[in-house]
Design a protein around this nucleic acid. Sequence first.
RNA 1: GCCGAGGUGGCAGAAUGGUUAAUGCGACGGACUGCAGAUCCGUUUCCUGGGGGUUCGAUUCCCUCCCUCGGCUCCA
Length: 479
Amino acid sequence: MRRVTIYDSMSRSARVFAPLEPPRVGLFVCGLTPYDEAHIGHARTFVFFDVVARAMTRWGYRVFSVQNVTNLDDKIIDRAAETGEDPLALAEGYFLSWRAASERLGIHSVNYFPHATDYIGEILRQTELLIERGHAYASAGSVYYNLSKFPAYGALSGQRTEALRPGARVEVDPAKRAPEDFVIWKAATPGEPSWDSPWGPGRPGWHIEDTAITLRLFGPRYDLHGGGLDLIFPHHESEIALAEATTGESPLVNYWMHGGLLNMGGEKMSKSLGNVYSLTTALDEFGPMVLRFFYLNAYYRSPLEFVRDKSLEEAREAYDRLALPANRIAEIVERDGPDRAGTELPEALAADADALVERLDATLAEDFNTRESIALLFGWTRRLAELLGELASFSGDALATLRAPYDWGTETLGLFVREPTGRAGAWEKVVPIALAARARARARGDFAEADRIRDELAAAGIRLEDHASGTRWEFREPS
RNA sequence: GCCGAGGUGGCAGAAUGGUUAAUGCGACGGACUGCAGAUCCGUUUCCUGGGGGUUCGAUUCCCUCCCUCGGCUCCA
């Protein structure tokens, strides 16, 4: 297992990672509240934790990755009331939509997506235990966490409860003993989904959903907890209070990892601000590779600025150039197979490829520095630039060596995955017909006709490039 | 107000107690091309929020101030 350092939000420092039970690693990431379509801000966080899981797996850890689904909360209920749908059905619809988008994005590392409502039994058990131990109290059909009994509250966020501004954004619930107490079990209002409990019909509060899930799946302590920076307070802080009061064990989480937010117009991208860009739209327009590249081209903890009509266009230019040698090699190998004959690599070049892969691992192992890894990969693309014309002369083995750094990028960053053919299959046959007609026109010097064909193809989303070896084409929406 | 995260070239963004502060985008020049695009080569040596301090040396460590963003009880 490779030595990995992780910036831990709790200690506010980079620490060498040591799993509780090597090589096993428990990773819990706070997932979505599916009350609407996901936007590209959400996906930043999940792509990053996908890289964490991919990289750790490569380095010999056995990662069990869990992403919860808050499939019932106020926003979902409100939304369902608007549309007349059943709240749980509405949530499941948006969850499945998110699953589809995240699959397209290449997020395949999540082992399990537990839904909060599948853990009601665990939640009730934990709530009762907390009341028994004096850490929670029932009031008006709800159950609240008694913060005065948990002095360690605030360690993660640095917040002191006496300095908070109760009601700054959310109204204070009069049933609470103290305004900083948070709800564990919420009394049902008529018409919303509810479960029977010793305190009457109700539904779980947000924070306990996660601790119920992790206590059951990971036990009282586990390795990694991730999520967006905006969840530190109160959500993660409250998870600690709930779990540690329930189990008596500490710390709940060994390493807290928080991803920076995606900003648009200098502000957090969020539904309530209205500055959202849908994930599905982004995937349709730019494809998964460009999006992943855009996210991973920055350190995960820093805020990242998304500029409409600029950021992803820029990322596409950069990614296309970065991936060019990888794609050319893939084309040759797809055509001739991995055992194709050809010249071998100069020894120095082969050694450099090996050394680069080691450097890439070492770089990424320092708190998942994806940006620096990409910079190194650009170095390799520059190195291969002069070989682009003669790639076809190399043997299959030689090409595999040249491709190794890109394969590393596929394994860890999820980049350099070529678009699946699918519908593109038909185009593969049709476009060459038009290209042949254009080639004949060019051969007889009828450039007006040649340009007409090129323009019409461009308007249809097929872009051409003429090369000495022939005409290359690709899908590219006209700009 | 309190807590937290950030302030680096035209833009996006790394890194480091020490030669010209990475990488990319963009821009400019050249090669290639019927043209265009793509690609390749070269240039973009005047960029580390302000002020103090520690040090032979600070963008990096410490203090302070300013600015931006996030959170302050169900937001990735």
